[in-house]
Amino acid sequence: MTDSRDPRNTDWRQQLTPAQYRVAREGGTEPPFSGEYNDLKADGVFRCVCCGRPLFDSEQKFDSGTGWPSFWAPTRDDAVATETDSSLGMRRTEVHCPDCQGHLGHVFPDGPKPTGLRYCINSLSLQFEPRGDSG
């Protein structure tokens, strides 16, 4: 995670809302059932709010009942990166953007088939791009 006191973070503070900054740049978490994408059923791609990298597709989104947008897989195997998170006195796997290191959420081994994974992602770390009609 980046140090919020680092002067290189000035651009992030100008680009993001304070809530987005707290989650994406400081590793925070939005309250459950508060995010704008938790109940979203639209067709499209979820991008990193910081750098715009495509992360998740609506075709892999499912209702986990946890209060956060959940996906059973990213758009590609290399679309997201993970690392061990031992904060809060437990061992979890943090998910972040491999391009800008923005914090996205965590991944858990209790998701649906075919992967059995649940990428539990903060809405504040995402930007939704509806799929346009190509024809």
Rank of each mutant, 00 (worst) to 15 (best):
L117C: 04
F46S: 13
T17A: 10
P69D: 10
W12P: 01
L124M: 07
F62Q: 00
T82Y: 03
R5C: 05
G135P: 04
T93R: 14
G27C: 08
R5G: 05
F62Y: 10
V95K: 13
D133L: 03
M1S: 15
E129D: 10
Y119S: 02
L124Y: 03
C51K: 08
D63N: 10
T84R: 02
W72K: 02
V23D: 09
F71A: 00
Q15I: 11
F46V: 13
L40D: 10
D11R: 11
M90A: 08
R13G: 03
C120D: 05
P32W: 04
N9E: 13
F33W: 09
D99G: 08
K41L: 11
T115V: 06
F56I: 04
D85C: 01
T84K: 04
C48P: 11
S4L: 12
G116F: 03
V23R: 08
P98V: 14
D85T: 00
D11V: 11
P7H: 09
P32D: 07
D43Y: 01
V23P: 08
L55W: 06
I121T: 02
S70D: 02
T66K: 00
P54H: 05
A19N: 14
P54S: 05
S58V: 05
P109R: 15
D11K: 11
S70N: 01
D99C: 10
T17S: 15
P31N: 08
T82G: 08
T10W: 04
S123D: 04
G132H: 09
L16R: 10
D6R: 02
P74G: 10
A81K: 09
S58N: 03
V49N: 04
G102V: 13
P112W: 13
Q127P: 00
G111M: 11
N122Q: 06
D57W: 03
C120E: 06
P130A: 13
E129N: 05
G52L: 05
V49W: 03
P69K: 07
Q15M: 13
A73G: 03
V107T: 15
G65H: 04
D99L: 11
T2D: 09
D6V: 02
G67C: 02
E83N: 05
E129F: 06
G89R: 02
T115H: 07
C51Y: 06
Y21C: 06
W12F: 12
P69M: 12
D39C: 01
D77L: 10
Q15H: 14
C50W: 04
G89E: 06
S125Y: 07
K41R: 14
Y21M: 12
S4E: 15
R76C: 08
D39K: 09
P7I: 13
D78M: 05
F46C: 15
D39Q: 12
G27T: 04
G116L: 05
P32I: 07
P54W: 03
I121W: 01
W12M: 14
W72E: 14
F46Y: 15
